[in-house]
Design a protein around this nucleic acid. Sequence first.
DNA 1: GACTGTTCAGAGGGTTCA
DNA 2: TGAACCCTCTGAACAGTC
Lengths: 358, 358
Amino acid sequence: MLFEERVTVLPTTTTEVTSTPVSKTCQVCSDIASGYHFNALTCEGCKGFFRRTMKAGKQFRCAYEGNCKINRNNRRHCQACRIQKCLLIGMKKECIMSDEQIKRKRELIQHNRIKRIQHEIPELSGDELGRLNNIERAFAESTEQTSQQTDVDIDFTRLVGLYEQFSPVRRSESLTVIKKATNGCIEEVNLAQVLFLKTLGQLVNEVATFAKNLEPFNRLSKNDQRALLNGSIAELVHIRLNKLFDTESNEFIISSHSLNIAESRIPSRLIEEIYRFHHRMSSQKVDDTVVAILCAITLFSPDRPGVEDTDTVEELQHELTCLLQSYITGTRRKNISSFATLLNLLVIIRPISSLMRL
Amino acid sequence: MLFEERVTVLPTTTTEVTSTPVSKTCQVCSDIASGYHFNALTCEGCKGFFRRTMKAGKQFRCAYEGNCKINRNNRRHCQACRIQKCLLIGMKKECIMSDEQIKRKRELIQHNRIKRIQHEIPELSGDELGRLNNIERAFAESTEQTSQQTDVDIDFTRLVGLYEQFSPVRRSESLTVIKKATNGCIEEVNLAQVLFLKTLGQLVNEVATFAKNLEPFNRLSKNDQRALLNGSIAELVHIRLNKLFDTESNEFIISSHSLNIAESRIPSRLIEEIYRFHHRMSSQKVDDTVVAILCAITLFSPDRPGVEDTDTVEELQHELTCLLQSYITGTRRKNISSFATLLNLLVIIRPISSLMRL
DNA sequence: GACTGTTCAGAGGGTTCA
DNA sequence: TGAACCCTCTGAACAGTC
Ligand SMILES: [Zn+2]
Ligand SMILES: [Zn+2]
Ligand SMILES: [Zn+2]
Ligand SMILES: [Zn+2]
């Protein structure tokens, strides 16, 4: 008993060449060949069949007599004779990639893919783009502002801890000094520290202006605006201060004057955290947009004391986090740290305000 | 017998062709064909009939004249003529799998089933894979562990706040209760809360076991191990507690008992943060691996009080974050929340321990 | 373009059970 | 018996490297 054609149109006559040129005929099943596969001219079907069969090391047995004639229509019915024919016409198992080779290739593909995506066009949705523009503009405008007072409601008593980091101001008398610094009019304090207090006052104003210019911030209640701003101001100021931090000396440097906070009366735990944050942040590759988004994420922290509509704030923060990821992975700029590393900054900066709150 | 081409047109009366398209008609009984079976276009009925008959080697005899016309309604009446028709239109018994083939196929299915369940984690570099395995195993083993004490150094006084969330234990007397709960031996406390305290003790042990089983954790100094574990234990316990949290009622549910922490003496600020975290986490799509990595990231937070080798911890945490990203984006799994959303969880959970620390 | 591997819907085996 | 189901195999279409 044999598995063969009867009504076939295939072999015999010499005219066959015209209808099916050998150069395009599968040497196994006479289907149309798609090219050389594993060292033989075959169709897509036989190519796949050979790879699967050899890779799995399958063994078949012919249900007939082991010499079935394979063609396009019956090739599925006798795997034994099909694989036999494959080997007969010279298909080579060695041409199949080993698992090791495949693994390596996959890693390569993954690697290339990441590289490619990073260099591609920024793919932000229209919605995200709008929010991004707002944040970028708010940030840019906040730095342009020249030390004038803002009308945003800041609780100065909460800033004592922050100012104390840069000047040995006693709590009892600090309030007036701070108000003066924030409003830009300092005369009496000692020489070098005037600069820092002035800068600090400037930064506090910048931060407030930044918040005020953020669209979603304005949609919150006055109470929540106050709570968010007061709760995050220390972190936000430190993010901006980072530009002035010198990792070599652990000092802040403003126009060639330097300030070492280790000499202040800040608890050493807090100093540690401040150093950790600034070292970490200094090692990041960021642009203004990234910094702006980071500031916004920090600002919209739902767990600040006194926040009422925490759900909205939480949602806003979540959206911003996604926006940051889109910006980083979607954008082609290669000189930006990874999303994960940047978010880590936000975790590391936290202790600065929670320790100050004590 | 030869293996012929499929015969497309059976010689019959010319009229029947018009009503039913041959391409979907059973060549045996004219019922609707479901496809090719054993080399002929047949219905499900004739497919099954042919297999059963040929496999059992049954012989039938026609009660009439051996030339019954088979159709959908009478096909059951004369098995002899039905099988005759089957063979006539070209059904091949060779296409029926032999017992040996069936046996092998069953083994294959069984084999695949096992492999599929255990081997569902592809991609990731070899290095990452190793770390991932360690984390997964540590997590799995920690949950298997039945409430026995661990030899990991836990500062029980730091747990007071945690336990207070679930039971109105007074600080003065809480220490002994906690120690007993952690060691699994509670008798005296009141009815429903025994369960919760027991569970809490169990979870504390699980968390400690998890940390202990993490390779990189063991490479740290004893001091840092203690600092990391004590600093993150509340967060880690809450991550595990999430499985018991019911977002509808804002209660924790253990074997049909429920506990409402709003009734405890926890500050409302903290309660808010706890709710926020559990709601957020409950809405996440995670698997055990994701949870395990999240736990590990939380554990390796360099800013916990008392950590000395912060650089190493920081580096470990960073590696873990990258691992999480690889796992989520690298694998094709659809039912996992986005990387950004998950990392946001870690920001949201922070207040739980920083508020408790006060 | 040539030739790897990958994907996935659909074909066709066996199995179940009313 | 056979409709409904589970599973593997198949191969056209596709993706990626060189
Ligand atoms: Zn072929
Ligand atoms: Zn054969
Ligand atoms: Zn039929
Ligand atoms: Zn009959």
